[in-house]
Design a protein around this nucleic acid. Sequence first.
DNA 1: CTATCCACCTGGCGGC
DNA 2: TGCCGCCAGGTGGATA
Length: 277
Amino acid sequence: MPELPEVETVRRGLQPALEGQIIKSVTVRCPKLRIPFPKDFAKRLAGKKVEQLSRRAKYLLMHMEGGGVAIIHLGMTGHMRVISSNAPIPGKHDHVDFCTTAGATVRFHDPRRFGLMTLTTEKNLATHKLIKNIGPDPLGNDFNDEVLSAALKGRATPIKAALLDQKTVAGLGNIYVSESLFRSGISPKRQAKTVQGGRAEKLTRAIQDVLRDAIEAGGSTLKDHVQPDGELGYFQHHFKVYGKTGAPCPTCDDSAHIIKKIVQSGRSTFYCSNCQR
DNA sequence: CTATCCACCTGGCGGC
DNA sequence: TGCCGCCAGGTGGATA
């Protein structure tokens, strides 16, 4: 689930329950996710007001009164849902609850435990280990085709791998890389350094369009995140190539050209070898 | 610097 | 029904 659009959807879904609210208590039920929780994680959040919930790439940032910042990553399988104050008994992978004085509970669920939560301060956020090396947010002001072509310059690695690298641009994952390359007609196998000029322009636009469309689709199912067991709608109905092995290419629109699946750096890539060059 | 492999985890699915 | 191998939205560390 969680690439940039999903994290943004979660952020928007949690905002009403958290922003401006006071954290009454935090319950951590497992010792560690991908990294150990700070020892005083719950204690340092309790009693504080959440001033703002923001997002940097795939990280959720909970800005607390007094300058503390909780850094949250959903990994591969993390969810955060708002549940009622009569919080149901936690299930198997319900690792963390944030309860507010207004009576809402935000519950973090993550079967594979590739997510993480840690704490820093406003002052140290930009230089934090997890944050300092990531590239520009594709929907922010720091990203455009010149920034992208500069980041790709000289890199012999396939464009697929370069886009998965969070240093190139932060927030794309395996799904949206395939979708962005398809929309811009660029082969995932093309050397990153050859994506310059017009190709970089097209790719930049494709990345921004696909992310915006996905956020919009996520937004339409936003209420799923505030219901105890809402089913997820998401963007999967809009995928053009991801998971579409063997389907006719929507661009070429003839049965001779079908979506292929290949493996690059250990991850699946979906593309059309006819219209992506 | 790059590329490759691997580890971290659990669950769902298809095959036998 | 069960067991087995394979696959999955992420990331970062070790290695050559």
